[in-house]
Simulated assay, not measured.
Amino acid sequence: MKIRISYGTAIQMGLKRGRMLARPFTAYLMTYHDGRCRNNCAFCPQARESNADVKRLSRVTWPAFELEDVLDGLKRGNFARICLQTIDYPGMVEDVKELLKAFQPLNLPTSVSITPVPRETLVELKELGVDYIGVGLDASAERIYPIIKDSLYGWDDMWAFTRDVLEVFGPGSAFVHIIIGLGETDREALETIQRVYDMGGSVSLFAFTPIKGTRLESLSPPPLERYRRIQAAHYLIRNGLARVDELEFDGEELVGFNDLKEKVDPVAFMTHGCPGCNRPYYNEKPGKEPYNFPARPEKGEELLKKFL
């Protein structure tokens, strides 16, 4: 059985050679399929109509290895967690279960990012050691969701799945993925973020990354200034320090934080995901200021002054 792993994970395992500016604390793995995903997300190299390299997910390359080699690498890698990404294809759920059974002797906490599955399947995943589920909502506005996602699963399906995850795994167990820069407004993004936290879930923010061969290959990434403001607002919302209607908007654009700016900590600019997730350089090229820092920014106070 084959499985894909992110290039940084492969380096940490000793399966590839290379230099890392920040090592991954989580082992990022992906189901292997000799073909493309059944869904057609406009930003994704794995989409059924994409012409991008199937070894890509976002800007990261995911080489394939035999499962036995990866299991050995997991033992060597000193990881805090396994994060298993999935693409949607016939037999995917069975493959996920087989992989989880293979991971069990390692005693590593495991997250799975997966398209909506029945509640009974969620119970099985929990019994196999999964403690967090990634929910790929991605598009944070209902009006753009069917255009961007072109998926077997609609907007309402994703929210129902999020609710099922929370009921099976408990509060905070659903990490809803939201990509900034797909055509949503600031207000739409933050209202969706607020909805997730009101349900008891959590949000992982991503910046849109154009990949050659995808439908959105010509779209630009979001301005860093915009992304920083949304990160700061997300920090306030997830920590219960503010609600969307307490922030300053000019129409649909977030322009300020009233008297809440002083409550924002530089950790707002870090990757926010399952415990142990730092996801280095998933959205950006090394050498540039990252959208999501893999560790607390050394010049965090300067970032606060610059962007807020």
Rank of each mutant, 00 (worst) to 15 (best):
R195M: 10
T110P: 06
H177V: 09
D164S: 11
V168H: 07
L152P: 12
E191G: 02
G183I: 05
A189Q: 08
L125Q: 07
T121W: 11
I180F: 09
I180S: 05
A139K: 06
V165E: 03
P118R: 12
Q194M: 03
S111G: 14
A102G: 13
Y153N: 09
G134A: 13
M199W: 08
T121C: 14
E191M: 09
V165P: 00
V123A: 15
T110L: 04
I144N: 05
I179C: 00
F103R: 05
M158I: 07
L166T: 07
I133T: 12
I180P: 01
I179Q: 03
G136D: 15
R195P: 08
E188I: 12
I179K: 02
A174P: 09
V130D: 04
F175R: 06
E191Q: 10
E191T: 12
R187A: 00
E191Y: 04
A141M: 09
A102S: 13
S173Y: 07
G200H: 08
R187K: 12
F161K: 01
N107S: 08
A174I: 08
S111T: 14
W159Y: 13
L125A: 04
Y132N: 14
T110Q: 02
R119V: 15
H177C: 13
V165S: 02
L137D: 11
L166C: 04
Y132I: 12
I148V: 15
D150G: 07
V117C: 13
D138H: 13
G170P: 10
R163A: 10
S173K: 03
R187Q: 13
T162N: 07
A174K: 10
P146F: 11
I148C: 07
E191A: 01
L190T: 02
P118W: 11
P109N: 07
I178G: 08
Y153C: 11
F169P: 07
L108R: 03
I180N: 07
H177M: 14
Y197N: 05
R143N: 12
T110F: 01
D198K: 13
T121E: 14
T192N: 10
T115M: 14
D164E: 06
